[in-house]
Design a protein around this nucleic acid. Structure first.
Length: 565
RNA sequence: GCGCCCGUAGCUCAGCGGAUUAGAGUACUUGGCUUCGAACCAAGGGGUCGCAGGUUCGAAUCCUGCCGGGCGCACCA
């Protein structure tokens, strides 16, 4: 309906004033109408005419040509044209589905990116949730989306961890690992993180240890190159890496996000090194102080190292390899990479390098970033180490807050509520800046929260359950009462909002909308009896439509919509 | 020093390819349950949209400068 109106308004402008204009209808406040346009104001300048008069002329024309679809066209203020749909047209636009704007496109979405040998922190939880929602959004728009995860299983941080592991075990003793954690993934992950901290501190403070760690780093790369699974060091390494992988897998499963294709750095490093050497030969990269670097200054960026003087690939090179491998594997039309915003300048450099040899690849790539996740009320939660909030800390704090505020007897529902709360809290703000997570607020059933939406859904489902069989036939009534109309109007915004969220890759638009929708429903519910009312049949249809829309929207965000709670 | 990002009610945030009276939530004050789930709804107070200029008939939104905060700038990821 919106698209059709836009076409009609544009046609009217052409006919009346002889100008081609692109019309983008907006959604004004309900009191003004269903759609609005400010073309007359734009044209006023262009044609040097009074915008108010132009608007009046357009309004007359629209009333004529759109008599079927429109109940009212009014001109307001300096020259806004407000359009109110007929009830019938409004009901019809309930059928509109979100656009298939990504139809036929292959898209690779990379996010989460946890490192083996380390603990998952709040940032991983964040991208896992938001990345999943963005991927869902693109999928519903017709895109073939491949979810991809990239992690550092080789590199200096792993060498630090391995150094700590060997120290703690008193040598390269793989059999000693059996005593760690006894099958508890979280305990093993914690233990590994402690080994990393141990290695990191030694690297910083103990010159002898630093030499050992640098040597270990090379050995670990070599272990991959030689496919070594037999030496004690190799057995230590693979076992601990598997621990991390199991821990990640378990985490994603409990979170309920779609699975990934995992690319470890060990897999992308060889390709990256090969590419880097080619780029060196081509003169894109150059040697400097024994290392191979890209001089970004000539592009307004900064210099970064791709191969160290030890001949080892840096993160840059492994990322470079990944970009080409992803393309070889999927031949994507679009590639989305979601990371923390501390990396924006870095990524610009890497993409600039790619641009030198494969401009289409860098052009197809979009780098989205997010800020830090902080816990409301300061750093009490960050006792673990440094001031990093753990992923499980967030979930635990939500669970604690949930149990404190409302007793839920059903385990599954509790889990759905807790994850719904955390996910919604992460999703509702525009991605980019830091996020302050407040556990109590997120699990609250009051206000703009996941559980509020889940409750608003459960309430509607409850009416539908009580209604029993299919609604009586109601073909005659196309007119809507005021309360019903408000809800229908809100419902018709759904596809427009989803389209916008897809275009901008911003799921928070969906959150804002769903909250407004739930509010609209609760208002309707408050003032309009459904069961037993003379208008029961059309109202039941409406409730059903609402419940479906809300559920669909929540699922797009990766949030469950339980039948009852 | 250079570069990038951010600054909207006490707090947490929408709105930012300009436009009808700047919106939510929370907190605070108040009203509403013998009827479909009150985990809800309604009403009220609370804002020089960091500051100063500029473009425009019109700026929270675009441009410039400044202030404040965060991050990044060579062998970590």
């Amino acid at each position: 309906m919106k698209a059709e109106l836009e076409k009609r308004v544009a046609a009217a402008c052409k006919e009346l004033f002889g100008v081609e204009v692109g019309i983008g209808l907006t959604r004004p406040e309900e009191q003004f109408g269903d759609y609005a346009t400010n073309v007359a104001l734009q044209l006023g300048r262009q044609l040097a005419k009074n915008p108010r008069e132009l608007a009046e002329a357009l309004a007359v024309k629209l009333r004529e040509t759109l008599a079927q679809q429109i109940s009212e066209v009014t001109v307001a203020g300096p020259g806004f044209i407000n359009i109110k749909l007929s009830d019938q047209a409004l009901r019809q636009s309930l059928e509109t589905k979100p656009a298939q704007s990504l139809d036929g496109q292959t898209i690779v979405a990379e996010y989460s990116d946890p490192n083996p040998f380390k603990v998952l922190h709040a940032g991983h939880l964040y991208t896992s949730v938001v990345g999943d929602a963005i991927a869902n959004l693109m999928e519903q728009a017709g895109g073939k989306v491949h979810r991809v995860n990239f992690g550092g299983d080789v590199g200096l941080h792993v060498a630090k961890s391995m150094w700590g592991i060997i120290k703690e075990l008193g040598g390269e003793k793989p059999e000693a690992l059996q005593d760690i954690g006894l099958g508890e993934l979280d305990i093993k992950a914690d233990w590994l993180t402690k080994r990393y901290v141990q290695g990191h501190e030694a690297y910083e403070n103990d010159p002898a240890a630093k030499v050992e760690i640098v040597a270990l780093n090379k050995k670990i790369y070599a272990l991959h190159a030689q496919n070594d699974h037999g030496t004690p060091l190799a057995r230590l390494y693979w076992t601990c890496r598997d621990w991390s992988y199991d821990y990640f897998k378990h985490f994603y499963e409990t979170l309920g996000v779609q699975p990934f294709r995992y690319y470890p750095e060990s897999e992308t490093a060889p390709t990256g090194v090969k590419k880097a050497k080619e780029l060196l030969a081509k003169g894109v990269l150059e040697e400097s102080e024994g290392a191979v670097v890209f001089k970004g200054e000539q592009h307004g960026l900064h210099t970064r190292v791709f191969l160290t003087k030890e001949g080892l690939p840096t993160y840059e090179t492994k990322d470079l390899g990944l970009i080409f491998i992803k393309y070889d594997d999927y031949h994507f039309d679009k590639s989305i990479i979601i990371t923390g915003n501390d990396i924006v300048e870095y990524m610009k450099v890497v993409l600039k390098v790619v641009e030198q040899v494969a401009p289409d690849l860098s052009q197809a790539t979009t780098h989205l970033t997010h800020g830090l996740v902080k816990l409301a009320g300061g750093e009490k939660m960050s006792s673990r180490k440094g001031n990093v909030v753990g992923a499980l800390d967030i979930i635990a704090s939500a669970a604690t807050a949930a149990r404190k505020t409302h007793a839920i007897d059903d385990k599954d529902t509790e889990k759905q509520t807790v994850f719904g709360a955390v996910k919604y809290a992460f999703l509702k703000s525009r991605m980019g800046g830091d996020l302050i997570y407040a556990p109590e607020e997120s699990v609250s059933l009051e206000g703009n929260s996941g559980p509020y939406l889940q409750y608003a859904h459960a309430r509607a489902r409850s009416i539908l359950r009580k209604a029993g069989g299919p609604a009586a036939d109601d073909s005659a009534s196309t007119d809507l009462e005021a309360g019903e109309r408000s809800l229908v109007r809100k419902l018709t915004e759904y596809p427009e909002v989803v389209d916008k969220a897809v275009a901008e890759l911003m799921p928070h638009h969906v959150c804002t909308y769903l909250y407004e929708l739930a509010q609209a429903f609760n208002r309707f519910y408050e003032n309009n009896r459904v069961l037993g009312d003379p208008r029961e049949a059309p109202r039941l249809e409406l409730v059903k439509n609402y419940a479906t829309t809300l559920k669909t929207g929540l699922e797009l965000l990766g949030i469950a919509a339980p039948e009852q709670m």
